[in-house]
């Protein structure tokens, strides 16, 4: 979706407030709890990472851009839980149970399980029966599309010519996985775009931008 999250190439956001490595991991106590709750609720398996991302980018642009990172996470988590029927709006407001919790047939994740869960991670690679359509070195074009659903093809690359530089095998396809329509793994490639082909003549001819793109985002050039 062409939401506020798709920031590549936009202007007017001002200087980068960087910090020379001095920044604390969290800036407020509530950020720690919002971060940890988002992970711990994710561990319960009621949604996937693609749905989480889509939920965050569905926040209205004006609100998204005015929110801090963990405010976006908090809002995203609440929407995911409402959607999954784990909470109702009144409960979120008062911070107190009003309806019987949906039985997930499992205990919450315990402290002693955390390390193993994080180590296991959630690989997105999948076996895929069909062979890759493209090989390293092939010239391709990122297709033009403007889907209202989740996608990971950024706007600034749509229509641009590039070259396949890496092939990662089959990976879960976010465009369907975000919407409960299955993982539908596709071949994933890293595509190299000349900066001039993306941004125009003012770009340095030696510069390149790369993105990881699924096969259906690409057409043979």
């Amino acid at each position: 979706m062409n939401g506020a999250q798709d920031l590549g190439g936009q202007h007017g956001f001002g200087p980068i407030e960087h910090d020379e490595d001095q920044e604390p991991v969290f800036h407020h106590e509530w950020e720690k709890r919002a971060f940890a709750m988002t992970l711990a609720m994710g561990f319960l398996g009621q949604w996937n990472i693609d749905k989480s991302r889509h939920t965050r980018e569905s926040i209205r642009p004006a609100k998204y851009l005015a929110s801090s990172y963990y405010q976006i996470w908090t809002e995203g988590l609440i929407r995911l839980m409402l959607d999954a029927g784990l909470v109702v709006p009144g409960e979120v407001h008062i911070g107190h149970k009003e309806v019987t919790p949906r039985d997930l047939h499992r205990e919450p994740v315990r402290a002693h399980e955390v390390a193993a869960i994080l180590s296991r991670g959630g690989p997105a690679s999948r076996d895929i029966a069909n062979g890759p359509k493209f090989a390293i070195g092939d010239r391709v074009t990122a297709i033009r599309m403007n889907p209202i659903h989740h996608t990971r093809l950024p706007r600034y690359l749509r229509g641009c010519p590039g070259e396949i530089v890496l092939h990662h095998g089959g990976h879960v396809f976010p465009d369907t996985n975000a919407h409960g329509q299955g993982e539908n793994p596709q071949h994933l490639y890293t595509v190299r775009f000349a900066a001039r082909d993306v941004w125009g003549e003012h770009a340095n001819p030696r510069d390149f931008v790369h993105a990881d793109l699924w096969e259906s985002y690409l057409a043979a050039a």
Binding site: R33, A36, E91, G95, P101, L104, P108, A111
Partner: peptide, 24 residues
Amino acid sequence: RVRALESLLVEKGYVDPAALDELI
């Protein structure tokens, strides 16, 4: 809002505060 959310999720049995501490 975050504090209310944590109270709610603990009360509903969805998260264990000790696991949150461990993640942090």
